[in-house]
Amino acid sequence: MLSFATRRFGLSLLILFVAVTVMFLMIRAVPGDPVQIMLGPRATPELQAQLTAALGLDQPIWKQLLIFYGNLLQGDLGTDVFSGRSVTDIVFQQLPFTLELIFASILWSASLGIALGAYAAAHPNTLIDRIAAAISVSFVAAPAFVVALLALLVFAVHLQWFPAIGAGEGFWDRLDHLVLPAFAIGLSWVGYIARLVRASMLEVMGESHVRTARAFGIAERRVVMVYALRIAILPVVTVIGVGMGFLLSSAVFAEIVFARPGLGKLVIDSITTRNYPIVMGSVLISTALFVVSTALADLINALLDPRARTAH
């Protein structure tokens, strides 16, 4: 178990390194001189040269990368070009908003999706199963940004049930502000997880050990909820781990549509202003978030499945 965790951690670091390096190179390939965009068309050549030197943009690109990693190892993500504040501060100020949005989305979509899928699998080919299938397929097909706009229009503008913009203050207000964005980006996951759980459950329900459990007169409820679901849930954990990455990108839409603070909004804003340090800081943190969540999913799987523990 310990060596499995160590190796998983090493792999995570490698993924993080590759992702951050690629992003570092990509943002420098975006056309347009960043210094000109930042300072505006009327800046003097002296001022431009000064900022270029301050950002280290006069150095060759491999050297820029080395300096970036050197600072990173010291926990320094650089300073914001405009406000002069530490990038670490800015990113960690925005991070909680994105995290609460992602966790809320996963929480409601996974619970509903697992319940829907397990119920459909326990009653295959009944009317309920067909209704669940229709619901899940239509949910999967709904893109997050369309759902976000419609939800905003219907529930915030017309019905005025929930606030339209911002993140709110205080626990209940923040929860209130979370409902529509979490609904928007979680909806397609409900359908996806329901389909996955149903297929996985049907496969497990056909295995011999389920027949054994029934042959010992164990109550059907326990057979489904413990004997089958504990195995059927394993692929779902992996999918949710990877799904964190997709949810991060859906969160960008939700944060823009609902004018919520968060990592997604921060990245978009800083890319348009070529604010390199902020872009790199946000990308680094969201990549780390993704890497950690997939590693976490693997570890949870190993805890749930004794076979996976000894196989590694």
Partner: peptide, 10 residues
């Protein structure tokens, strides 16, 4: 089949 007859995660 004794290899399939018990629940693998309990």
């Amino acid at each position: 089949d004794p290899m399939q007859t018990h629940n693998p995660v309990l």
